[in-house]
Simulated scan of single mutants.
Amino acid sequence: MLRLEDLLLARGDFLLGASVSIPRGARVAILGPSGAGKSTLLDAIGGFLAPDHGRILWEGRDITAVPPADRPVAMIFQDNNLFPHLTVARNVGLGLRPNGRLDAADRARVLGALADVGLDGMAERRPADLSGGQQSRVALARVGLQDRPILLLDEAFAALGPAMKREMIALVTRFCDARDLTLLMVTHDPEDARRLDGDIMVVADGGVSAPAPARATLADPPASLAAYLAG
């Protein structure tokens, strides 16, 4: 279980508090208005932002002060964080070896990871040679090799067209289910939450709601979500 225990994030006039528990293997869409703190929440879980109060626990272990590289967390941003001068294989290989030095066994794992996300035969291409959806698949293959139980997506598919976004959400769902990953996905689109078909957390008015089933929540939204959906 991922637990945010009396967490407080403060930056100037901005305050965000969270006390929620997220079961292992959950798929959670995080919705809320712009500026409410959705990405800030992911940054804290990922270790890129130190909380002003409270703790972050994974399976009972306090990871609040653990550096990002040592956390049980992998993260994909909207730009996929790919290095344009590296091949697809070398970008994915960074999930195994941050120094980029891959042996034969590592290269075999990289090719297997690419095949898992539908990029068989594209190992020697550069990111600029790929579509947006293919670049997202490269980022997904890389986090798969990191072998971390929590996956954070910060509007990772926001730039994709509707059909490609549907395809990527379906792929991520299968990917996480096969590995028993806990998924937190920031999105502005309630349809993404429906397709993810897990839970919703709403970030609004300085707080974070507990995970609740997405379909039921969207059918009868609480006031904070209803205001956002109507905006």
Rank of each mutant, 00 (worst) to 15 (best):
L4V: 11
R142I: 14
M164Q: 11
A230N: 14
R142Y: 14
A156Q: 11
I169H: 07
L102D: 10
R126L: 15
I63T: 02
P72T: 15
P23V: 00
G95T: 12
T64R: 02
A89K: 07
L181P: 08
V143G: 04
A230D: 13
I45Q: 06
L102E: 02
V66G: 08
D189Y: 00
L183N: 04
L181M: 07
Y228E: 04
D120P: 09
M1E: 04
V172F: 09
L31W: 09
A141D: 05
T64K: 08
A163G: 15
T87H: 10
I169R: 04
R174N: 15
V110C: 05
L82P: 05
P84M: 07
P67T: 03
P222Q: 02
G47F: 03
T87P: 01
D192W: 05
L82T: 01
K38T: 03
R109W: 08
A105R: 05
Q135H: 03
S21L: 12
L196F: 07
R137C: 01
M168F: 06
D199C: 13
V143R: 02
G32H: 06
G60H: 06
L151W: 00
R101W: 15
L151G: 00
L4G: 13
R148D: 06
P51V: 01
A141I: 03
G207N: 11
C176T: 09
D199E: 15
Q134V: 04
G35K: 11
M185T: 07
R126F: 13
G60P: 04
R215K: 14
T87L: 10
A44Q: 01
P221L: 00
R166T: 14
R71M: 01
L94S: 12
L145P: 09
D192F: 01
Q134F: 02
R137Q: 08
T182H: 02
L119I: 02
H85I: 10
D6T: 06
S131N: 09
I63R: 04
H53V: 14
D192M: 01
L130T: 00
D177I: 09
A44I: 01
R125C: 08
L225P: 02
D147K: 13
G32K: 01
A36E: 12
S19N: 12
M75G: 08
H85G: 09
G133R: 00
A74D: 11
